[in-house]
Design a protein around this nucleic acid. Structure first.
Lengths: 181, 181
DNA sequence: ACCTGAACACCGTTCAAGT
DNA sequence: ACCTGAACACCGTTCAAGT
């Protein structure tokens, strides 16, 4: 799935689709697939050939962002105590979610894909890394897992734009307090 | 808005629409408005006349359930210490949310409507009642409000059916721990 | 005052035909 | 092997005509 196309024109089409999707996804409302195809100058069928599901496209659109989040986990853990690292990481996720609303759909989709494909370096593993470190020092509840965190983080998506500044950091503090032992 | 119709046939149509919506909303997927109109034996325009927005209909469908939740708050508070009452109330919300998935959409819609209309006996007031009691005893964070709770509770909606039993109570415990001071 | 339902708009998805 | 775009399906929403 999502393998690299063999033909050069196909690879270019694929790249242009992702590029246009990235430009369009920032606009309010759901990303319109037909609009992406039109903007990329390809037929709708071509879009579906490369990305059978909406999630496939979103994962690709936010791949770099998600990878950055995954990479940040061990880095933060090297600099700070586990709970502070977790806090910093959650705040970073919130920043992404504010600027790029759709990134969370990609994160959720990635977690779902993980369950089947078990890809290396996933978001779920990043969260687990942070949680395990905190559990080892007995500063986090032993019974929480990555899915708990993903589910709770989903509440960030429901925050209205005008209340973001005051509400987002607040919710993260509450979530972190809940994870603490 | 949503005032009682003057004519008898209009009142009957309205009642039948709500009745059919209640029957259809339990099925998986979003409630289809045209399907509701057809099931109720009325034109689509009639449905829109009575319920200009989807939220208006959902609020009506779950009115009794939401009122029961609102009424439960002071009752639980009379029986238990504030934090236990809050815990019990959250668990009750979770029960509703499991059986009637859509009830949460109604709760969210109610909170939105509250902001404008300021209706008495709302969900937001019920939560505030519980939170204030807990704050008064210094067992809850002073900086949390009803919207925090509603946003966090939204994570329950994303729980898959097959993991509900183990996950829902767990998430509520984490949320409650986060609200604790 | 209220109802009907055809009609429009919109968007996702498929597939026969083409290169 | 890959692309195109007409066509279908589906659902929300409106509105002219009717009672």
């Amino acid at each position: 799935m999502a393998s690299v196309p063999r033909r050069a024109d196909a690879a270019q089409n694929r790249a242009r689709i992702v590029e246009c999707a990235r430009a369009l996804v920032v606009r309010p409302g759901e990303l319109k697939l037909n609009e992406v195809a039109k903007a990329a100058g390809v037929g709708q069928g071509t879009l579906y050939r490369h990305f059978p599901t909406r999630d496939d496209l979103l994962i690709e659109v936010y791949r770099a962002d998600v990878e950055a989040l995954v990479a940040a986990a061990p880095e933060l853990l090297a600099e700070q105590p586990p709970l502070e690292a977790l806090h910093s990481w959650l705040r970073r996720v919130a920043e992404y979610a504010r600027v790029k609303r759709g990134v969370f759909a990609a994160v959720t989709a990635s977690v779902r894909t993980d369950l089947a494909g078990h890809s290396v370096g996933s978001i779920a593993e990043a969260i687990t890394l942070l949680l395990d470190a905190a559990k080892a020092q007995r500063v986090a509840r032993p019974d929480v897992d990555a899915r708990d965190v993903v589910l709770l983080l989903g509440s960030l998506m429901k925050i209205d734009d005008d209340e973001w500044d005051t509400r987002a950091g607040h919710l993260i503090e509450i979530i972190l307090a809940g994870l603490r032992s």
